[in-house]
Write a protein that binds this DNA or RNA. Structure first.
Length: 648
RNA sequence: GCUGCUGUAGCUCAGUGGUAGAGCACUCCCUUGGUAAGGGAGAGGUCGACAGUUCAAUCCUGUCCAGCAGCACCA
């Protein structure tokens, strides 16, 4: 074997035999590094310490101090250790795959009986045993036939299938954690003892389809989370608790915003408080749209199937539609209708009324469109995923040449709104042509490029979402990051030449000929229902003053203050502040507690002193201090604060 | 839709093969109290729905409905 040259992070170089492993390199540097080493970066690739280096390379030895490789290895080894533990406890369980995911890993098993929460405890204990045993991790490359025979002999049908799926030009690698063997591309740690035994936890069991295909058998997936230290695990569990406290379903009840009930699954009963948020947001959006050159329309809920057949929804989307059949006895003729799941076909109907000129384009047609979709029961989730919802929907009818400018205009529009709503942290994804698509490659080239340059023109970087576009055109997706780091896809802009074609939309061009417009489907918040859920969770219920359903509660301390309380409430309301009086026969402590829990932003307390001095005692949500203020001055201040950001 | 779990008072949850309990909330009474629960009394339930087993079912069995977690879905 020849010599190769290794370059270290400090720039030093060393010539070694080809086939030297990172483990040997680490050992040659120091004993302690050999022990601490977990893996290596070889030419930037994450390398197992046992893999031979066969060409000139840059090399860096990783230890637990290197965040990304450390976490990946810990979680990956935990996946193997868990699978080993499961097979040790129940030898007839079939293993499948077990990848690393955010914060942890999962492993899918095939087992006749369901895993129980008690089983998880048992598995965890067995995993700790394996970790304490400090079993060595060993790897080998096998040829395909041997791997298949091995798994056939061991009655592991899923693994046989996996081996079969590995491309011909790829090596088939086996790993051993102690005596337990698994097919795996690696890399892994040196021995099981390198996994922190007190920084992982098995979280839950759930069903998952084999290879993500709902036509294939359902396996049992065990999820775990794993970190380097006990503290990191604790922090993560604390984060989960925080997310739980922010759950919009819980806050929706506590703040008396809405409820759902069995008789209308996936549809929302909005209570006065929740509906106030909704209408405040909608009024705000309407003002924005009017300012940005949209016209607002409204279209029917129940529409004959003939239109859905033309639009293509009948063939492609019927499963998700509420179909309405009117009985012959009650209808003059039997008709099959569907509740609209989308507004676009109806908007084209409006566009199609009368002749349109190129001078009418771009035509921005908006609707707060109420839609109903028969979402699969398992998809429903609070007010975030529902069957009845309203979109801030609009369709921009334009020419292909106008796409870029319209897209840019839309991004500016959306950025302003997100900022007003308190979301400064968001990113853009450009979804490109999928495998199954219509339209020529040239037109995909043009429209993808138009969206990309619109982003750049608006000053935003974007990531590519390869192959995730709709079958008819590319799209931009806008993803918000909330206060605790969770991502929500809300805004979207989709290029659609298909629907105008199917529904025969046209305009007369400067040349006097008929032309086909392009449609841009676009939304900023997506659905109001879901977006309000996101707002609630983002703010943990403590909405900005202008969005808070009850902005001020004026609470009496003694009943002699009642008349002044009512006067203050009346003055606040006259100034456009949503205020309520609380003159119940309760102590101020009780009232403060109750309104604080209900997330009312401002409590004004009024006792004898305030009555005499015409002042109020002000307490802001989240602040235990109080401050006495002259009411007249405060009134102007609160009135200003109550105005939406675009009116301030 | 699939897998697993759950469904008892408005909310959070105990409980039992012989038709039910707590805390908070609610109503009334006492208390007028200065910034996160003052005291007392009272009212409140077809134990998710429908079948079956049983002398007897909220409890056991089955079907359905809804919710939760994950998967699949989100033209």
């Amino acid at each position: 074997m020849g010599q190769i040259t290794l370059t270290f992070p400090d720039g030093n170089q060393r010539a070694v035999e080809a086939g030297t492993t990172p483990a040997e390199i680490a050992a040659s540097i120091s004993n302690s590094l050999a022990k601490k080493a977990i893996s290596a970066q070889v030419n930037g690739r994450h390398f197992d310490l046992q893999w031979p280096i066969t060409e000139d390379a840059s090399i860096a030895i990783n230890t637990m101090k290197d965040d990304a490789p450390a976490l990946e290895l810990i979680r990956h080894d935990l996946a193997h250790i868990m699978a080993r533990a499961v097979q040790a406890l129940w030898p007839d369980v079939k293993v499948t795959i077990g990848p690393v995911i955010e914060n942890g890993w999962y492993y899918d098993f095939d087992r006749a009986e369901p895993f129980t929460p008690e089983d998880l405890g048992q598995i965890e204990a067995k995993m700790k045993e394996i970790i304490n045993a400090r079993d060595p991790v060993r790897t080998e490359i096998w040829d395909r036939a041997r791997a298949i025979k091995h798994y056939e002999d061991n009655d592991e049908p899923y693994k046989v299938e996996l081996v079969g799926m590995i491309p011909e030009d790829q090596q088939i690698r086996m790993y051993w954690h102690g005596e337990w063997q698994d097919l795996c591309r690696g890399p892994h740690l040196q021995h099981t003892g390198q996994v922190p035994g007190d920084a992982f936890k098995l979280m839950k069991v759930a069903g998952a389809y084999w290879r993500g295909d709902s036509n294939r058998p359902m396996l049992q997936r065990i999820y775990g989370v794993g970190f380097r230290t006990r503290q990191e695990l604790k922090d993560y569990l604390t984060f989960l608790e925080e997310a739980e406290k922010r759950d919009h379903r819980r806050l929706g009840r506590e703040m008396d915003l809405f409820h759902l009930q069995e008789e209308a699954p996936g549809q929302i009963f909005w209570h006065p408080n929740g509906w106030k948020i909704y209408t405040t947001l909608q009024d705000y959006m309407r003002r924005q749209q009017e300012r940005d050159g949209y016209v607002e329309v409204n279209t029917p809920q129940v529409v004959d199937r003939k239109l859905w057949e033309k639009s293509g929804h009948w063939d492609n989307y019927q499963e998700n539609m509420f179909i309405v059949e009117v009985d012959e006895d009650h209808a003059r003729q039997k008709a099959v209708n569907a509740l609209k799941p989308m507004n676009c076909p109806c908007h084209v109907q409006i566009f199609n009324q009368g002749l349109k000129s190129y001078r009418d384009l771009p035509l921005r047609m908006a609707e707060f469109g109420s839609c109903n979709r028969y979402e699969p029961s398992g998809a429903l989730h609070g007010i975030m995923r529902v069957r009845g919802f309203t979109q801030d929907d609009a369709h921009i009818f334009c020419t292909e040449d106008q796409i870029e400018a319209e897209a840019k205009k839309f991004i500016d529009f959306l950025a302003k709104i997100y900022a007003d709503l308190g979301f400064e942290n968001w990113r853009v994804k450009l979804s490109t042509r999928p495998e199954k698509r219509i339209g020529s490659d040239e037109s995909w080239d043009r429209t993808e490029a138009a969206l990309g340059s619109a982003c750049r023109a608006a000053g935003y970087e974007y990531e590519i979402n390869e192959g995730e576009g709709a079958f008819y055109g590319p799209k931009l997706e806008f993803v918000l990051r909330d206060a605790i780091g969770r991502d929500w896809q809300c805004g979207t802009l989709q290029v659609d030449p298909n629907l105008p074609e199917r529904l025969d939309a046209s305009y007369i061009g400067a040349d006097g000929e008929k032309h086909r417009p392009i449609m841009l489907h676009r939304a900023v918040v997506g659905s109001f229902e879901r977006f309000i859920g996101i707002l609630i969770e983002n703010y943990a219920g403590k909405l900005p003053f202008w969005l808070a359903p009850r902005q001020v509660v004026v609470a009496s301390i003694v009943s002699d203050a009642d008349a002044y309380v009512q006067e203050v409430v009346a003055a606040l309301r006259a100034a456009g502040v949503r205020a309520e009086a609380d003159i119940r026969n309760e102590k101020i402590n009780y009232k403060v507690r109750e309104h604080s829990l209900a997330k009312v932003p401002v409590i004004l307390a009024i006792g004898q002193r305030e009555v005499e001095e015409r002042t109020v005692s002000v307490r802001r949500l989240g602040d235990t201090r109080t401050e006495t203020a002259a009411f007249d001055g405060l009134l102007a201040h609160l009135a200003a604060e109550a105005r939406a950001p675009d009116l301030a």
